[in-house]
Simulated scan of single mutants.
Amino acid sequence: MAPQALALSGLRSVANRRLSGVERAAALMLALGETHGAPVWKLLEDDEIRDLSGAMASLGPVEPAAVDDLLVDFVSRMSSTGALIGNVESTERLLKQFLPKERVGLIMEEIRGPAGRNMWEKLSNVQEAVLANYLKNEYPQTVAVVLSRVRAEQAARVLAILPEEFALDVVRRMLSMEPVQKEILERVEQTLRSELMASLSQTSRREPHEQMAEIFNSFDRQTEARFLARLETASKDSADRIKQLMFTFDDLGKLDSAGIQTLLRDAPRDKLTVALKGATQAMKEFVTSNMSGRASKMLMDDIEAMGPVRLKDVDEAQAALVNLAKDLASKGQITISKSKGDDELVY
């Protein structure tokens, strides 16, 4: 008998009972079986696999009606709104239903806090001013240990911010530092995690609309339009705010010369012509200024000879170029942004 059939046959002999979160997940994975469950298993972490496997091993028989209700509930939750909008709070609530509290805390620290595989990588992604403000209240020897473990360029910028006498004391201690005992290093790491990182995870959350605009920028055009349409119905103000923050066709005018030339090289000629037909004069001049004189003249001749074009076709052509820019950016071939200078946002 196939594993899926065997699992389901064992679910038919016991009356219905209330399942915990991890038991519900275990029953769902048993019902999915080897074929349909395999892609899910591949996405799980080792500790998640252990928790889920343990629940499956001790699950026992479950009434088939409970399995049906579980599957129907899962599908209805996924399809009831047509669009899912996640945030930190809803993610944390969901994880608490399936994972131990300590594990959820570590996962949320990864999400909210600086990126990095370990404490020292995370620390290297903390802003120098924030790190210096924290370290200035620590013992110079502790600061010396911390700065000896981060990137040299970051340590230099932190030292430049610290009070001069304090910084010189730290430098002297770094120069005479003996190998740090493992126990001391672990205590320093634990202090950083419980104080600095915990503080950052609570205070450094991004503005939700800005974060959601970045997510929408990663959608394909059809998904983006579908989500925005549903969101406009539910909350027009939020939809308008997200659209303001998203990368648009006009933002292509912020590409540097190398970026726009890369885009023009890969852009389908017919899409480019239609997109520019409905573009501003400034955008037309920006594009043609990054083409040879002959290619520029041919493009403008094609646009003038085109005649009237439906606005819908212009929108679709411009969207195609925006999606092309996103694809090129994801491959690292161009950099797209909403602004210039020090406040540049790279998507």
Rank of each mutant, 00 (worst) to 15 (best):
E48K: 07
I49E: 00
I49T: 03
I49M: 07
R50G: 02
D51G: 02
D51A: 13
D51T: 12
L52Y: 05
L52I: 12
L52P: 00
S53D: 11
G54D: 13
G54P: 13
A55L: 04
A55S: 06
A55E: 00
M56P: 13
M56R: 11
M56V: 15
A57V: 14
A57I: 13
S58H: 14
S58Y: 10
S58W: 10
S58L: 11
S58F: 13
S58A: 14
G60V: 10
G60Q: 12
G60D: 02
G60N: 05
P61E: 04
E63R: 08
E63H: 14
E63F: 14
P64R: 02
P64I: 11
P64T: 09
A65G: 09
A66V: 04
A66H: 07
V67R: 01
V67N: 00
V67A: 05
V67F: 01
V67I: 03
V67P: 01
D68Q: 14
D68W: 12
D69T: 13
D69F: 15
D69R: 11
L70N: 03
L70E: 04
L71H: 00
L71I: 13
L71N: 01
L71T: 06
V72M: 03
D73W: 12
F74S: 02
F74A: 08
F74N: 01
V75F: 06
S76D: 05
R77K: 07
M78K: 07
M78L: 08
M78W: 00
M78R: 06
S79G: 09
S79V: 12
S80E: 15
S80H: 14
S80L: 05
S80V: 10
S80K: 15
T81F: 07
T81K: 10
